[in-house]
């Protein structure tokens, strides 16, 4: 946290005027194109690649809205900090929950052949000394 004295106008502070109309329209068109792309991609049989393609297109669209429509591009460093915090804590949240579900059946020892499972009537198992100290 830089120790900038706060009341003088912080250099990267938002200089209080909005972007140009032409910029917004181009971003709008880009979003429409990406929407069409993601819908088209869903009709193409991509098999395993469906999910990564759809997610990456959605991320690009979200970035476009964030950077231009929400003035993050010209915004102060604090706004970037907030977006970064949201990003990494959401990933912490999803990845650690995912880690549990992914690693649930990593290692399962194969069950013993049946005759070992069923209790053998007569012999006393060697591993059980009379009484542990």
């Amino acid at each position: 946290m830089s120790a900038h004295a706060h009341q003088q106008h912080d250099a990267t502070g938002h200089h209080d005027e909005a972007g140009s109309v032409k910029l917004y329209v181009t971003i709008f068109v880009a979003l429409l194109v990406l929407t069409a792309a993601t819908v088209a991609a869903s009709n193409v049989p991509l098999g395993r690649w469906h999910i990564p393609v759809a997610i990456s297109i959605a991320v690009i669209k979200a970035l476009l809205v964030l950077l231009f429509f929400m003035h993050l591009l010209g915004g102060s460093r604090l706004q970037w900090l907030v977006v970064a915090a949201a990003g990494c804590f959401a990933t912490i949240f999803v990845s650690l929950i995912g880690a549990d579900y992914a690693s649930r059946d990593w290692y399962l020892p194969p069950p013993a052949p049946l005759e070992q499972q069923i209790w053998q009537p007569a012999e006393i198992p060697p591993s059980a000394p009379a009484d542990k100290p």
């Binding site: 912490i92 949240f93 650690l96 880690a99 549990d100 579900y101 690693s103 990593w106 290692y107």
Partner: peptide, 20 residues
Amino acid sequence: FLVWGHHMFVSGQSVYAGMV
């Protein structure tokens, strides 16, 4: 924010996640 799994060591959570 990284440690909540220690409430679930015996609740059926996977062994490896428990270690993490």
